[in-house]
Structures are given as C-alpha cells and as structure tokens.
C-alpha cells in the first residue's frame, strides 16, 4: 500500500526507506508488547518525513527499527533496494554508515572522558576511514559546518551547553557521510531560541548534503515546520499520513485534530477563546491494548463500532492515508459545499 504514497512526493523511483507492515515486539507471551504494530510508509530520497505522537506511541522504536538498530518481529524494511536484516554482520557495519541516528539527550551521547574532537573522530576510526590526520581534518571541518567554533573541539562535553553538545552530536553523525538521518527528539531538550537555530541548521544540512530525514518529535510545531510529510502515531499504529501542512490544517483523524487543538499557540485573547478539544485520560497500558480502534477509549467521536472493528487505513485524498471510521465525515467538513460547519463533539 505504501508504494502509492511515494508517487505524490517523489518520482525518483526507489525510496530511501521503505517500511512494509512492520511489527516490533518486546517480551513474550503474557508480557508481549507490540511497540510498533503493522506500520507501512516510504520515505523518498531527500524528503523530510516527520513522525508525531505522544510518549509511548512507539515513534522512537519505529525510528530505530527503520535504520536497523532494532530487529522487527514482522514485516520488512528496505533501505533503497537493500534489506538491512539480510546482511552479514560485516556488510551491515558498512551499510550502517549510510543510516545514522541522532538521539534526544546529547548528555548521554558523549563519553565524558573524551574531548569533543575525539568523539567526532571515533566513528571514522571504527569505520576504518582514512588515517588519523585525515580523520582529524574531516572532524574539524564538520564541526565548522555545524557552526561549532574550533576552540570547542578540545573541550570535554561538560564544558558545552546543551545546544553546543547537540551540534557536536550532529557533526558526529555527519562525518560518515550518511544518506538518511533519524532525528529522535533532537530539539526537545533545548530552549526555544536555540531550538530555532538548530532547526535552521537541520534545514541547511539537508540541502547541503542532500540528506533524507526521519524527524521524530512530540512537538507539533517543530515537526510541521520542518517536514514535507508527517505520520501521526498512536499506540504503535499510524493514524494518519499526509503532507505536513494538510495534516496540520485539515486533520482527518480525531487524534490528529486533538493533538493540534492541544498545542498552545501565541494568539490574541479573542482567538484563544476557540473551542478546544481536551482529550481525557492517557495512553492505555501496552500490556492490555484496547480492542477495535486503539484510540476509541479517548476518542471524542467514538461509537460502539469503534470498540469492535479496527478501521482500515485508506487513501482519502491523494497522498492522505487515514485509519478512522469517520475519516470520510471529517473530510466532508473541509469540502467546499456543505463544509465549514464545525463538528459537534460528543461531550
């Protein structure tokens, strides 16, 4: 089903990442948890694909499995034409350079006893790239690319601010000349002014190095700002996929709509008085997933059918895939005729 999704965003043929009906589970029998449950999507080369969801929705696991760090228990992952899980250990090590991941917490990502320069050089050493002088030169050049001043390179992680550490973290991923970068909550720990700077940097790097991003975040503003397309995840499943501005402005799944509504905005007092959807409850326990549609326990639109039948994911508009029984109704609200009326929410 996912091959159709690329058609709208890229015509280059082979996607950079393609995930088909992937399941990732942890534990066994009674403690089995399906962190990712039957997810399909493709990411075209050069695309920024955003993944949004609350904590516990499985978005980090999805990102890790997509680059081959976690082995899926079902379905398949393709990097271009390559199946990373069919590679030998040696082949996989060489292949991994092309698929890098940047983690959320830059504090945990560095060895406190290595200088920043040493940390940035290390991946090249492991990959067997060049000699020491070349590695040093490349590391310094990359630190310059991410706008870290040269005197920072001799410092230890504790001397750097959060933003500076995150820059070094990015430089370390880039020295191996990757094609795909999974950015897992990379700006979550930063102040808003630094965050803006980092988002600009990510955009510049994407252009300069022709990178493909899987951009994972719980922050709607961040994801919708940077991404071409986004997937909204809930409890291990994708609820909705579509172009970023479409999903933001015309959500077709009640969960996307609720997330959008929960995101605070700077607005004048009158504009603030809009109706807000406040979701009740929290994400359910992973050990005891709800029947039918996974969102039905918190959904403002849920009816009896939602508890028994799981909705199929279907394409409602070009490139827009939604898994909700009411998706057509939601779409009709945005249609030119008969549209415009606000939906009444079930209280």
């Amino acid at each position: 089903m996912s091959s159709r999704q690329t058609e709208s965003s890229a015509s280059t043929g082979v996607p950079a990442v393609s995930v088909q009906d992937m399941t990732v589970s942890f534990g066994r029998s009674r403690t089995l948890v399906r962190a990712v449950d039957g997810v399909s999507f493709t990411v075209a080369p050069g695309e920024i694909f955003g993944i949004i969801g609350e904590s516990g929705s499985g978005k980090s696991t999805l990102g890790r499995a997509a680059v081959g760090m976690v082995t899926p228990s079902g379905g398949e992952v393709r990097h271009g034409a390559v199946d990373p899980f069919a590679l030998s250990r040696q082949q996989l090590n060489a292949h991994r350079r092309k698929y890098q991941i940047i983690a959320q917490d830059p504090n945990a990502a560095f060895n406190p006893r290595m200088t920043i320069l040493e940390s940035v050089m290390e991946p090249m050493y492991i990959a067997g790239m060049g000699n020491r002088a070349e590695r040093r030169e490349r590391a310094l050049a990359m630190l310059d690319t991410v706008a870290l001043s040269p005197e920072m390179s001799a410092r230890y992680p504790h001397d750097l601010s959060g933003g500076q550490k995150q820059r070094a973290n990015i430089a370390r991923a880039l020295v191996l000349d990757p094609e795909v970068l999974v950015c897992d909550e990379v700006v979550a720990a930063l102040d808003v002014s630094i965050q803006a700077d980092m988002l600009n940097l990510f955009w510049r790097l994407k252009r300069d190095f022709n990178l493909t991003y899987l951009f994972i975040s719980h922050d709607l503003n961040v994801v919708s700002h940077i991404s071409d397309r986004v997937a909204v995840m809930y409890f291990g499943k994708i609820m909705e996929i579509g172009p970023a501005d479409e999903v933001m402005n015309r959500p077709l799944h009640p969960y996307s709509e609720a997330l959008r509504s929960a995101e605070p905005e700077i607005a004048a007092y009158q504009a603030r008085a809009r109706e807000r959807i406040i979701l009740q409850g929290e994400i359910p326990s992973a050990l005891n997933p709800p029947s039918g549609c996974r969102f039905h326990t918190r959904c403002p639109r849920a009816v009896e059918m939602c508890a028994s039948n799981e909705p199929e994911q279907r394409e409602l508009a070009p490139g827009r895939f939604v898994a909700c029984h009411f998706a057509e109704e939601m779409l009709a609200r945005f249609a030119p005729e008969g549209g415009g009326q606000k939906h009444e929410s079930v209280g």
Binding site: V192, Q195, A196, N221, V222, H225, I226
Partner: peptide
C-alpha cells in the same frame, strides 16, 4: 523563534 508550519524553512529567527 517559535516554529510554525506556515514559516519558510530555514528562516526561523
């Protein structure tokens, strides 16, 4: 510096 979807990418203040 608050990001939003409407803003041209790479141009956050």
């Amino acid at each position: 510096s608050v990001p939003d979807a409407g803003r041209e990418r790479g141009t956050l203040n």
